[in-house]
């Protein structure tokens, strides 16, 4: 159980998720998705640096990293679909907890991208 209870914890989880998925898609031979994940990872790192507004840092509750565990072994099509939907759900569920618009927008967009929308 690792709580996603701070801005940094959520952004670090997002960075780790994209890093893991970039490697996963690479192994699955899905280079388009792999490079999209690598780009998103860079973006999330930038957001973690830039969108942290000290005066509005607030505690976040009700989220845990265990709820978004990915199976990165199964590179089948159904495995990839499951990974993408888990990633999309992660972003969808963490975005509302962010009170910095730039960060929330980036997370919402990542949710849409993982959902293929």
């Amino acid at each position: 159980m690792t709580p996603l209870n701070t801005f940094g914890a959520i952004m670090t989880q997002a960075i780790g998720l994209e890093e893991g998925l970039a490697d996963y898609y690479e192994r699955a031979g899905n280079s388009d998705q792999a490079s999209a994940c690598a780009r998103r990872r860079q973006k999330m790192m930038r957001i973690r640096r830039e969108a942290v507004l000290e005066i509005t840092l607030e505690a976040i509750d009700g989220l845990d990293s265990d709820d978004y565990a990915l199976d990165l072994e199964d590179v089948s099509e159904s495995g990839q679909a499951l990974a993408a939907s888990t990633a999309a759900r992660f972003y969808r569920e963490v975005a509302p907890g962010m009170n910095v618009r730039q960060a929330r927008r980036a997370l919402e967009r990542a949710a849409r991208e993982h959902a293929g929308q």
Binding site: T6, F7, G8, R48, R49, E50, V52, E54, L57
Partner: peptide
């Protein structure tokens, strides 16, 4: 302080 607070400080 926490890492978030420190990042916020550097940003400011």
């Amino acid at each position: 302080k926490t890492l978030d607070e420190a990042r916020g400080e550097v940003r400011r």
